[in-house]
Design a protein around this nucleic acid. Structure first.
Lengths: 209, 209
DNA sequence: CCTGCGTCTGACCGTGTGGTCAAACCGCCC
DNA sequence: GGGCGGTTTGACCACACGGTCAGACGCAGG
């Protein structure tokens, strides 16, 4: 990930390269997350980025390279909240904090959420490798942490992996299925505010020892 | 929905029409759910259905018509479990039963789940209308039912709409994000069996008055 | 002003894809 | 068998899309 030359974006040296690669990645995030990989078009991304299509391909060797660059660079941010869940504080508070940060992210970074959702839905053709290695390692580590909390009686005994899955499912639902949520609730609702209250009580009841 | 001629599939009159339209819809479900609308190809669907591409277009006027026919015909099945949740029995048992049926569906009908997920993710371009009318009406009705249960003290006081959302999110997660779940759990796991246990305790704790 | 390098683009290409159409095929009823 | 729906297909079209390339542009250093 430190070596950009391996695959994907050229190392941003000059000021202008920095600016354009950023513009491309942002535009690509916008388009890929809304249309999926195959649904997205280089022309769309180029227009969104304010560049010409050949100019895109001056900075990235292919459409797929842009997609891969996006996924890998975003995975870190995406998993940051989980990484920050440590045994430094009250276990239940740690988990609640993780859930809230994840919910916040689904509100502030819905495009990223949808990008990953699209990728996983299609069977993770461009990210499958990372799932079984990096992601699994991180989740296993945190699951072990949660298991220790449970064994110590600090939280209720729950399956750690599925607890994490439930946090993912519930928080990302409000980003990925936003249209549905809003359509069902109708006007005059604030989905995320309501979700925070609901999910707080849900996980409090679930985790109380 | 009773009048197929309005948009989409021709009315299946003869034996052969019945057989072929079914084959097409099944093949289309397979391909659309795995590749998304734009990712899917008429040739793929035709091959999967054992027909030629022009023959597809003899039965359906366009690619989009197939997609719409799929979505509308499946929405009924998809919402059936929610419809069957009535106040005929014990409230908590009714909700638990709904959750379990939904979880079973995510195991037995993962293609349908992914098809809807794809559609919603892309902003429901071909189903948006139904969300705010049919779906909203049904959910509002059942939400009112749940609210009555809560007010009668038969279940804990929870936001009915978000309770339903949480059931959707948690159960569909195991279908839509199957690759991720399996990659993280590793071999030797039965995601759905574990999910049923986890979700059972989760909703029991949540709903207990 | 010239050179040279990084940046950018118009024009182009090959392929994949949704869709059309005239003609052929098939099987049932007279 | 002949006719006649309904059914099937090969050949074809228009166009969108990913990607290429030769060259133009712009600007810093001499």
């Amino acid at each position: 990930m430190a070596d950009d030359t391996a695959k994907g974006a050229p190392r941003p040296r000059t000021r202008i390269q920095q600016r354009n690669t950023e513009a491309i990645l942002d535009a690509a995030l916008e388009v890929f997350s809304a249309q999926g990989f195959r649904g997205a078009t280089l022309d769309q991304i180029a227009t969104e980025a304010g560049l010409s299509k050949p100019n895109l391909l001056y900075y990235f060797p292919s459409k797929e390279a842009i997609h891969i660059a996006l996924l890998t660079s975003l995975l870190d941010d995406w998993l940051a909240p989980l990484r920050e869940m440590t045994d430094s504080g009250d276990p239940q508070a740690e988990i609640m904090r993780y859930m809230r940060r994840k919910l916040d992210m689904s509100q502030t970074m819905p495009r990223e959420s949808r990008l990953f959702a699209n990728e996983i839905l299609q069977g993770a053709p461009r990210m499958g490798a990372m799932l079984g290695t990096d992601l699994k390692a991180l989740v296993d580590e945190k699951a072990a942490l949660i298991r220790r909390w449970a064994e110590a009686g600090q939280i209720a005994p729950v399956d750690p992996h599925h607890l994490i899955f439930s946090i993912w499912a519930l928080t990302q639902h409000y980003a990925d299925f936003d249209v549905q949520v809003r359509a069902v609730l109708g006007p005059g609702h604030n989905p995320h505010a309501e979700a925070e209250i609901f999910l707080s009580t849900l996980f409090e009841k679930l985790l109380k020892p």
